[in-house]
C-alpha cells in the first residue's frame, strides 16, 4: 500500500498548531473553553488517523497558506509514522477529556501534558515520540522467547 509521500514540514506545522491548542487547554481547562478546545483537538487527531495526515483541515491550511512561502522540501517522508503518532495523540486527548469531564482534573492535566510534550518535540526537533515508544512497547510486550517470524534483512546493499 504505497501512500503518496508528504512534506515533513507539514507535520511540523501541524505539531505547532497542536502545541498552541494544548497550551490553551492547560491554561483554561476544566473550564468550558478548555474542554471545547480539547475536543476540537481530539477531532483533529481522529481525522488524521481516519483519513491520513495529509487530509486534515490543518494540512489544508499548510498547503494553502504556508507551503507556497517555503522553498521546495529537501526530501519527502512516509505519512504512516506521523499517522500512527496522531493515533497516540488521540488516545491521550481522549483520556484527558474523560478526566476533565469526570472531575478527575489531575488526570486531565497530566494526559494533556504528555500530548503537549510529544507535540512540542515534533514541532521543535521533528522527533516522533509515539514512533519511538512503539518499539519499546513491542519489546516490553513480546515474551523473551516468542516465536520469530522467518528472518530476512529488509534490504542489503552488496
Amino acid at each position: 500500500m504505497p501512500s503518496p509521500q508528504i512534506d515533513p514540514r507539514g507535520q511540523r506545522f501541524a505539531a505547532a498548531v497542536t502545541s498552541v491548542v494544548l497550551v490553551a487547554v492547560l491554561l483554561t481547562a476544566p473550564g468550558p473553553l478548555g474542554i471545547a478546545l480539547l475536543a476540537a483537538q481530539a477531532a483533529l487527531f481522529a481525522t488524521a488517523v481516519a483519513r491520513g495526515v495529509q487530509r486534515t483541515p490543518v494540512a489544508a491550511v499548510f498547503r494553502a497558506a504556508v507551503r507556497p512561502r517555503l522553498a521546495p522540501p529537501a526530501h519527502l517522508e512516509d505519512p504512516e509514522p506521523p499517522r500512527f503518532a496522531q493515533g497516540v495523540g488521540l488516545v491521550f486527548a481522549l483520556v484527558a477529556l474523560a478526566g476533565f469531564l469526570s472531575g478527575a482534573t489531575a488526570l486531565g492535566h497530566v494526559a494533556t501534558g504528555v500530548a503537549l510534550v510529544a507535540a512540542l518535540l515534533n514541532a521543535t526537533i521533528g522527533l516522533c515520540l509515539g514512533c519511538e515508544v512503539y518499539l519499546l512497547g513491542r519489546r516490553a510486550l513480546a515474551s523473551p522467547h516468542s516465536p520469530q517470524i522467518p528472518a530476512t534483512p529488509t534490504r542489503s546493499t552488496r
Partner: peptide, 22 residues
Amino acid sequence: THVEIDAEHHLDAVRSLRVLRT
C-alpha cells in the same frame, strides 16, 4: 556492506543487542 533489519520482527535480537530505538 549495509544490512537493514526490521526490529519489530526480530525482538530477540533487538533485546540481546540492547537496541532501544530506531
